[in-house]
Design a protein around this nucleic acid. Sequence first.
DNA 1: CAAAATTAATTTGCGCGCTATTTAATTTTG
DNA 2: CAAAATTAAATAGCGCGCAAATTAATTTTG
Lengths: 158, 158
Amino acid sequence: MTTKAAKFDSGSDEALALGQQLCFAVYSAAHAFNRAYKPLLDRFGLTYPQYLVLLALWQQDRMTVKRIGEELGLDSGTLSPLLKRLEAAGYVRRARDAADERQVIVSLTQGGRDLKAEAFGILRDIGNASGCSLEEVREMRDALHRLTQRLAGRHQES
Amino acid sequence: MTTKAAKFDSGSDEALALGQQLCFAVYSAAHAFNRAYKPLLDRFGLTYPQYLVLLALWQQDRMTVKRIGEELGLDSGTLSPLLKRLEAAGYVRRARDAADERQVIVSLTQGGRDLKAEAFGILRDIGNASGCSLEEVREMRDALHRLTQRLAGRHQES
DNA sequence: CAAAATTAATTTGCGCGCTATTTAATTTTG
DNA sequence: CAAAATTAAATAGCGCGCAAATTAATTTTG
């Protein structure tokens, strides 16, 4: 195979190369973060998405399932069982809203609030592992945010 | 100290904000890509990870499961059932290596090769949706690649 | 050469994440 | 006000993604 100059046979062929693709770079980075977080979160019996829910609740306690879903970009099909597990782990409480029984209010327990102090340590460890300057982090974060917005396109602009 | 100006009580509190986190930006962008790809890939009955496997095989046909796993950063526990589905869909073939019966060689069928032509259309659509210049894409891709490498840390340097 | 160690792939079990569907409560409307 | 439409959560089913255990083949070693 590949006898003479197989490496540059078509040009557009190059564009399909795995290593060239932004989507694959994002996909890989997401997995890398997951793997980096895992040992740190295992200590608390948390998964990464569960940790994200706690991050959201540390910012704003007492949110409905729907509101949390808007913050994280997840639907109730994902959040309902996840929140049950967070409740079973003792980090949050779930209670129907008395004013509107359709809604479920999720709030932090004392245990959930206590965990916030530990989170700074996790943040520091990940920051070190990423080895990025604050400047770099800011740039990438904003670029990714713009990308996400554009990809979401017409579906929903907040 | 905290009582009065609750918004900036600690400074490091800000750092935990969901919107500030690079990891969340990556997580969200990965989901946004997935959602953008879904309608395009549904036409072919493919999921995004399955599409990644095909991308890898279009670059280099006839790889072992292990090799594909190295390309994509996935283990056999993920790939084995995924490859079975790709085979059931008629895009690849799986066959034990006669020289080493432990290994399974995955190769493209004619249907799998034919799909490559369609992939350029998908690439174009996603490229348009992302709305990035080639320059931007290159920069972000390389920055993410460096980030991924650093996060993977000592676990495995290829 | 036979036992032990290593390797490749599969399988099992669990937690996302999505799509539908269902259930229940609230709002709209006729 | 009652029927219809909408809304919020929960549920079921499927496909990743990972860890751990299993099976089978190969390599190492004693």
